[in-house]
Amino acid sequence: MTGARTPLVEMRNISIAFGGIHAVEDVSVDLYAGEVVALVGHNGAGKSTLIKILSGAYQRDSGTIFVNGEEAQISNPRDAKKYGIETIYQTLALAENVDAAANLFLGRELMTPWGTLDDVAMESETRKVMGRLNPRFQRFKEPVSNLSGGQRQTVAIARAIYFNARILIMDEPTAALGPQETAQVAELVRQLKSEGIGIFLISHDIHDVFDLADRVVVMKNGQVVGTAATKDVTEDEVLGMIILGKCPPGAVAGPGALQVAA
């Protein structure tokens, strides 16, 4: 399906260690435009760490990142954003004491010609983007700490999509949400996908993964067990990859796959 197209992002042979522990070891993944790739695995499998390398929060020890086929220099979150990589962190990474607009534009504030913050313009833009995601949201003047879990999630999502992301990383985007809001996020993922945005989705929910993702990458102990198109494997097979590291026939085995003799 991917053919000869250039991947939007390719992370090649990425490794990072913290105090001698290999959190991510020789991992290669890629992502094409308009594609959703799910990263799954146990807690501590290295998914979030891998993603934080792409978003600039961590510095990799070795390996290369390509964006649109060209090598990308990503050494901090600002760099990543320059390449159109936006991240919705599991913790949401919101400054709780300021309002939605301040969070949405954090680090990329709109300024007046006199070099001061243009709060009114920022609030106006925030109203537009939030109106698209959650038309009933009205609490623009309140600190984010006063908002509900779902509303905060919406702010985090709004921040990621407002700046015309080409690559979106969603780390457990539905963990804090109720069923209705989860459905909304799923709808949003499909919409963004249709706009040609590539999405890395980290999720614990295997149903979500099969519902939304085109491909699934399974990680275990910092290594890739295998990669498969979701239509080629069953949920049970993916669970087998997560738990046992056993690579089914429908998947391409990675370095972390269980080596079965013969």
Binding site: P77, Y89, L92, A93, A95, G107
Partner: peptide, 16 residues
């Protein structure tokens, strides 16, 4: 300054 006080980690992730 206020963002750092609210959530230092978020401020770093925002590229500050």
């Amino acid at each position: 300054v206020f963002a750092i006080g609210g959530n230092p980690e978020a401020a770093v992730l925002a590229g500050i």
